Simulated scan of single mutants.
Amino acid sequence: MDINKSNFRKAKNKVEKLKRFYTHLGVYFIINTIITVVKVMSNMNMGETFEEAFFDFSTVASWLVWGLVIVIHAFSVFGLPLIVGDDWEERKIQQYMNEELQQDKNYE
């Protein structure tokens, strides 16, 4: 029964991480699309062509900077478990619990 609870907790944690990532990705596309439309329209009103306005660095910068953050987030969700293992969190929790127990024993 305890193993089932542990497995359920791990699966739920993975689903929550995926949900946060996909939400982040959706917000990234929505907000950057709005920023791009506003900047392109503003630049075109100032006399630039569509191409000049669209490929202006200030227009593309938010996609690039936030895109880097998305890549890091994706790595933490998909890549990091491949490197450190799926049970890394469980091992770290156990390590810290053992350290706390050891400290408590030292004070007794």
Rank of each mutant, 00 (worst) to 15 (best):
D2P: 04
I3S: 15
N4W: 13
S6H: 14
N7P: 02
F8L: 14
K10R: 14
A11V: 07
K12Y: 15
N13C: 12
K14R: 12
K14S: 10
E16V: 11
E16P: 03
E16A: 09
K19Y: 15
F21S: 01
Y22K: 07
Y22W: 11
H24I: 03
L25I: 06
G26N: 08
V27M: 15
V27S: 11
V27C: 10
Y28E: 04
F29W: 08
F29K: 04
F29N: 08
I30Q: 04
I30F: 15
I34M: 08
I34N: 04
T36L: 02
V37Y: 07
V38T: 10
V38S: 06
V38E: 05
V38H: 04
V38G: 02
K39Q: 13
K39D: 05
K39P: 02
V40W: 02
V40A: 02
V40Y: 01
M41T: 08
N43Q: 07
N43S: 11
M44E: 04
N45K: 03
E48K: 07
E51H: 06
A53H: 00
D56P: 01
D56G: 03
D56Y: 07
T59D: 00
T59G: 01
A61N: 07
A61D: 07
S62A: 12
S62C: 07
V65Q: 01
V65Y: 05
W66R: 01
L68R: 03
V71C: 15
V71T: 12
I72H: 13
I72N: 09
A74T: 09
F75Y: 12
S76I: 02
V77R: 04
F78A: 11
G79L: 05
L80P: 02
P81I: 03
I83D: 09
I83G: 08
G85N: 05
D87Y: 01
D87T: 01
E89Q: 09
E90W: 01
R91E: 05
I93S: 01
M97Y: 11
M97D: 10
M97Q: 12
E99D: 12
E100Y: 12
L101A: 13
Q103W: 11
Q103I: 09
D104R: 09
K105M: 13
N106R: 10
N106F: 07
N106Q: 15
Y107G: 13
